[in-house]
Design a protein around this nucleic acid. Structure first.
Length: 554
RNA sequence: UGGGGGAUCGUUCAAUGGUAGGACACAUGGUUUUGGUCCAUGGGAUUGGGGUUCGACUCCCUAUCCCCCAGCCA
């Protein structure tokens, strides 16, 4: 990945900081997910940004779990996040950290703020705190508990920690300014009481730090230099800075960028979970999901995701990236590495009348025209073949290069054939096509200068293996399901045909010894990848993407 | 209408007072044993109005539009 050439406004800031020796020339970043869901491609953007900066500037990037809310988090999510980041190819062996490992330190820091009269325990109910916070246009009102003595605050805070109060009975608040125009500064809550066991600290704690209190401290403890987050945290930066200044500890610079949004999908963990919970998709790794695990199962390569993340750029304005760009990136990568094979998805029979009944020929086929090193394989050829239903048409339009009666086409790697006759069932559906072949065109070529435009893929019926193939389309019918005038709820825009399952597909026999981790190109049909639920007895392929198709029916 | 951000081809990212450029998408050709790949060509943008300047996407004024914030979520 050549990200040395990458640049964006954050790189510019770092360049300037390096020049002024702001952080002793050591650059540290972090990727801080909350383990409350699976990672999606928006996270991949952040991962590539943060790990990419570490690579480019010879620094470090930590994976740090922001596990400050036991109500929503679990080890299952921790494990999925680790595995997704490893799959993307970033080295995190020694860099997996947890906010929960710093809880003791956070507590000590809180005591310092209390002693400096910068924090107090508040007994007000959640409702009251909300009311007294004021509104966008109205200033807040001081809590009656705001001026408790240091001693009383320490005692109450210790009691909070010791579990003497129930959930919501007390909170620790920073004493800043209830009149601040920035709502985040109106005595924000630092600790709340939650009597729930935590996936790592178990029942050791019943007070848990809020994001704003914890995040800067985590960054500071880890000696992060550039704390990169998304735009909605711009309003939180004054608070981030306030906590660190009060404590007078290492002070990273928070920088905000616009999160990734992709057309025809949704990107919030909450919405994705809603799709799962309501059975619109099969789970976090459903191949239609914009999750890392979804893309993996769909057959995207980690490289294609990284190419994409580096191509979309980093800026501060809200934008929606065209899904077509993602598809371009996966095609670009897979075109180089996918092994070409032949598979007929919607089969009809092709009978070569002048080919000997029992003869079987072994033809040689290249595995990848983009890479000679991928070698060749052997294809069995015989009198009866499967071809694609859409490759025959009775009344073909002018520019149809495929099969219709009287027309000659090439069978890839095999022979020229000319269509002679079509067989239909009682319902008028085509069930078989007859043709003759030209024995002199073996390998799919003659020297007589004949022009044969169409080339079809095929599979010998007696050698074919069966498989199920799953075709995927966009999950939503509108570009921006969360903000579309055409619909009320985002689920109204779900594409009801985002999945279609083909159960009668015929694959060339070389696919019987399948390699699970290989990306295939089914010739002329697209890129395909073995599904994780595939078995020896029931082979299942997912279509990663179609090929670009410049042929448009009139 | 309190505060914080942001407006550049259809989409997205650049241009840091000096020829508005790239990528994707689209269109048209060429090559081709995949209607793939590859190659070439084309159309297409500075939110509006003023100002400063030899020169403005960039600086100033003004108007407009969009996003975020009133969780004991992150």
């Amino acid at each position: 990945m050549d990200n040395d050439n990458l640049s964006n406004f954050i790189h510019d800031i770092i360049d300037a900081d390096l020049k002024s020796n702001k952080y002793n020339s050591k650059i540290n970043t972090r990727f801080p997910p909350e383990p409350n869901g699976f990672l999606h491609i928006g996270h991949a953007k952040s991962i590539c940004l943060n790990f990419g900066i570490a690579e480019k500037f010879q620094g470090h990037c930590n994976l740090r779990f922001d596990d400050t809310n036991p109500l929503k988090e679990s080890d299952e999510y921790v494990q999925s996040i680790i595995s997704d980041i490893k799959w993307l190819g970033f080295n995190i062996q020694d860099n997996i950290l947890y906010a929960s490992d710093y809880f003791e330190q956070f507590y000590e820091y809180a005591l310092i703020l209390i002693k400096n009269r910068k924090a107090y325990v508040d007994d007000q109910s959640a409702e009251l705190i909300k009311i007294n916070r004021g509104t966008l246009n109205k200033p807040g009102e001081n809590s009656p508990n705001r001026d408790r003595s240091v001693e009383e605050n320490i005692m109450l805070f210790e009691n909070m920690k010791a579990g003497k109060y129930g959930d919501g009975e007390k909170v620790l608040r920073a004493k800043i300014n209830m009149n601040a125009p920035n709502l985040n500064l109106r005595d924000p809550i630092m600790y709340r009481i939650i009597h729930t066991s935590h996936h790592r600290t178990d029942n050791k704690w019943c007070i848990y730090p809020m994001y704003d209190w914890a995040h800067g401290l985590e960054d500071s403890i880890e000696k992060i230099t550039h704390s990169i987050c998304t735009l909605e945290f711009e309003d939180h930066r004054p608070l981030y800075d306030w906590y660190l200044s009060q404590l007078d500890i290492h002070h990273p610079q928070q920088i905000e960028f616009a999160r990734l949004d992709l057309s025809y999908t949704v990107m919030s963990k909450r919405k994705l979970k809603e799709l799962i919970d309501n059975n619109y998709v099969d789970g976090w790794d459903d191949p239609r999901m914009p999750t890392i695990s979804g893309f993996k199962r769909r057959g995207y390569s980690p490289e294609s995701i990284k190419i994409f993340c580096n191509k979309i750029g980093v800026a501060k304005r809200d934008s929606i990236i065209d899904y077509a760009l993602l598809e371009y990136c996966v095609r670009e990568d897979l075109n180089k590495k996918a092994l070409r094979v032949m598979a007929v998805l919607n089969p009809i029979k092709l009978i070569i009348d002048n080919y000997p009944d029992d003869k079987v020929e072994e033809l040689s086929a290249e595995n990848n025209p983009e890479n000679e090193l991928d070698g060749t394989r052997v294809l069995p050829f015989s009198k009866e073949l499967w071809i694609e239903r859409s490759d025959f048409m009775e009344d073909a339009p002018k520019k149809y290069f495929r099969l219709s009666i009287g027309k000659e086409v090439r069978l890839k790697h095999a022979y020229y054939i000319t269509c002679t006759e079509v067989v239909k069932n009682d319902a008028g559906e085509v069930i078989a096509v007859h043709c003759t072949y030209d024995p002199k065109s073996k390998g799919g070529w003659t020297n007589d200068g004949r022009k044969v435009r169409g080339t079809l893929h095929w599979v010998s019926t007696q050698h074919a293996i069966d498989a199920e193939v799953r075709l995927y389309d966009r999950l939503f019918n509108v570009e921006n399901p969360l903000n579309s005038k055409k619909i009320n709820n985002f689920t109204d825009a779900i594409n009801s045909s985002s999945l279609s399952i083909l159960k009668n597909c015929k694959l060339e026999p070389s696919l019987s010894n399948i390699n699970l981790d290989v990306h295939y190109q089914f010739l002329r049909m697209g890129y395909f990848y073995v599904d994780s639920n595939s078995t020896k007895d029931k082979l299942i392929f997912n279509r990663t993407s179609t090929l670009r198709d410049s042929w448009k029916k009139t």
